[in-house]
C-alpha cells in the first residue's frame, strides 16, 4: 500500500511522525531526497523522528545512537530499523509500505 504525506507538513532537516497502516514511521527530507524508517530506535525505543539529521543519518535523541536512513543500520546495535521507499510526487511524499 501507498501513503501520501503532504510536503507542507515536512521541513528539511527535521523529522515528522506519520501513523499509517498500524505503523509509526519517521519521515525526513534530506539533501539526498525523502527518507522513511520505522520511528522507534531498536536500542531503547527512542523517537527517531525527533533526532538530529546530518546528511542521511539521524541521531536518536535519547542515547545518541546514529541510524543510517539508507540502510537502517544502527550504531552499536545488531538490529536494523526497517526502511520504506519514499519519493516526491507533486506536493506530497509517497511512502510504499
Amino acid at each position: 500500500m501507498s501513503v501520501a504525506v503532504p510536503l507542507a507538513g515536512l521541513r528539511p532537516g527535521e523529522g515528522r511522525l506519520v501513523s499509517a497502516g498500524g505503523r509509526e514511521i519517521a519521515v525526513f527530507l534530506t539533501p539526498s531526497g525523502p527518507r522513511a524508517i520505522d520511528a522507534r530506535c531498536p536500542h531503547a525505543g527512542g523517537p527517531l523522528q525527533d533526532g538530529l539529521v546530518c546528511g542521511t543519518r539521524v541521531t536518536c535523541p535519547l542515547h545518541l545512537r546514529r541510524v543510517d536512513l539508507d540502510t537502517g543500520s544502527v550504531e552499536d546495535c545488531a538490529e536494523r530499523v526497517r526502511c520504506y521507499p519514499a519519493r516526491i510526487a507533486g506536493d506530497a511524499v509517497l511512502l510504499d509500505l
Partner: peptide
C-alpha cells in the same frame, strides 16, 4: 505550530 504536530495523524488520513 506545526513542529509539534504529526505530519499525518492516523491511517484514516491516507491519500
Amino acid at each position: 505550530g506545526d513542529r509539534f504536530r504529526r505530519a499525518l495523524a492516523a491511517a484514516g488520513d491516507m491519500a
